[in-house]
Simulated scan of single mutants.
Amino acid sequence: MSDLPTCTCCQRDLRDYETGRYACTLCEKRIEGHLAQIPDLFERLDDHLHRGAGSSGPAVSGSKTAPIPCRLDVLNLRTAAGPALAPLETWVRDWEQNGFAEVNELGSAADRVGHACRTLRFNLSSAVARHGAIDEFADEIASIHRHLTRITTGETAPRRIAVTCPCQQTLRITLDTRGETCPRCGAEYGHGEVLRLPLADRRAA
């Protein structure tokens, strides 16, 4: 077996030119790609705010029909405390404490998402080499990217998968699950850890 250190994100052996890093260059490029796309995906949420948006043409001024109800999941995503902007700015604050970034909470939610992603991209190479939680960062950025992509492309929600905790408790997760706590033994799993749990057999599931 190779005694080379491994990437904390994908577990691939690091090459000689990647030594001293927490993540390989392939994972760094994947993270950078997600960060580059998130601001545009976030701005496109406005086109999907109403149920049926994009499928029936533009709204007609003066219509006597009841207004189309808003999608609460999209409204929540567009808020400062939602599952897109809040974690992005949490990582900026975390990197700021390590000398990698600077927080800026001015402007609209879209402005702040754009600033956070630009800041995280600018400092990504330093973080990959110096930040021990880069795997958690990669998982969360990928989760945000998938969430936004599903809404803006109309993809269905991910299928739930049954996995088994060592205490034999069945946990039902998705590929987007950020973490899970076992209700039986209290074990806490991060995104990568819970995805590595063994699949439950069909009877348990």
Rank of each mutant, 00 (worst) to 15 (best):
residue 4 L to G: 02
residue 9 C to F: 12
residue 13 D to E: 13
residue 19 T to N: 14
residue 24 C to A: 07
residue 29 K to E: 13
residue 29 K to Q: 14
residue 38 I to L: 06
residue 42 F to A: 07
residue 43 E to N: 13
residue 44 R to W: 04
residue 45 L to I: 04
residue 47 D to V: 04
residue 48 H to Q: 09
residue 53 A to M: 13
residue 55 S to G: 09
residue 63 S to F: 14
residue 67 P to I: 11
residue 67 P to H: 14
residue 70 C to F: 15
residue 75 L to G: 08
residue 80 A to I: 10
residue 82 G to I: 07
residue 83 P to R: 06
residue 86 A to H: 00
residue 89 E to P: 10
residue 91 W to D: 02
residue 95 W to C: 07
residue 99 G to S: 06
residue 102 E to L: 09
residue 109 A to L: 11
residue 110 A to N: 10
residue 110 A to R: 03
residue 110 A to C: 06
residue 111 D to G: 10
residue 119 T to G: 03
residue 119 T to K: 11
residue 122 F to S: 13
residue 125 S to D: 14
residue 131 H to N: 03
residue 137 F to V: 07
residue 137 F to K: 00
residue 138 A to H: 01
residue 139 D to C: 11
residue 140 E to K: 00
residue 141 I to C: 02
residue 144 I to W: 06
residue 144 I to C: 09
residue 146 R to E: 03
residue 148 L to K: 06
residue 151 I to A: 01
residue 156 T to W: 05
residue 157 A to G: 01
residue 157 A to H: 07
residue 159 R to K: 12
residue 166 P to A: 11
residue 168 Q to L: 15
residue 171 L to R: 11
residue 172 R to C: 11
residue 175 L to F: 07
residue 180 E to R: 09
residue 183 P to A: 07
residue 183 P to K: 08
residue 187 A to G: 11
residue 198 P to Y: 05
